[in-house]
Nucleic acid binder design. Structure first.
Lengths: 113, 113
DNA sequence: TACTGATATCGACGGCCGTCAATCTACCAG
DNA sequence: CTGGTAGATTGACGGCCGTCGATATCAGTA
């Protein structure tokens, strides 16, 4: 809206200027690295794509396709949620997950988008 | 050029459909995870931004700003180069590094760009 | 209140990663 | 050839991460 806002405005919680711009500060690099570390796992990438493939998905629908134990799935959903990439909501006995598209876009922008 | 080419065409060596599309295969997830793991380190992110801040940069200009030992810098440049994110060229006694912008763009697209 | 089922947490094991000192290799100057 | 310098490689150490069995928590149901 305002003319004073730039690329970093769209960066949901991620305060990193693009890596392709000026040299990153230690703090900005650490914060971006934390989110990227959450993404840098095959199981979590597949989990993320499963969540993204629908508006919402229940934890119980993740164990089967991913072929991992229930504690492992719970661990990975927590890592992605802590990184802000997915959002969980408990309804009754089930936990429903959805992607935070803004956060994912923020990562792309931090990567020089 | 051809009309048959789509998003994946621009993905320099990265054959991953976007995570926001259909669920990722195990192989696609593993390959994307490998590149993201190379990015998921504060020192390497700062190194990458240093390389990106100029057309080229010499290894000897990295140790100072990053505050790491020479073997550590050499290790990190190798990790980034193996991931295809930077390209090194040896000229005389020095090694010059530059960013592979296409590869970085490929990562962004794999992340749903 | 008990009982069942869905998730979260804990504890432990094995393996991978970042770091650096020491060493090796390659290149240029003399 | 010899010396000096830039960079790569090796080996070792410490710590973090993915995984799962066991257990705890928490919501709905009878």
């Amino acid at each position: 809206m305002s003319g004073t806002l730039d690329v970093q405005e769209a960066v949901a919680g991620l305060c990193c200027p693009p890596v392709t711009g000026a040299p990153l500060s230690g703090e900005a690099a650490a914060e971006l690295a934390r989110v990227l570390a959450a993404l840098a796992d095959p199981v979590r990438l597949r989990l993320l794509s499963l969540v993204a493939s629908r508006a919402e998905i229940c934890s119980c629908n993740l164990e089967g396709p991913l072929g991992k134990s229930q504690p492992t799935i719970s661990h990975h959903t927590k890592v992605l949620a802590d990184a802000g990439l997915i959002i969980g909501e408990r309804r009754g006995r089930w936990t429903w997950w959805r992607v935070d598209a803004g956060r994912l876009a923020a990562v792309r922008e931090a990567l020089g988008g």
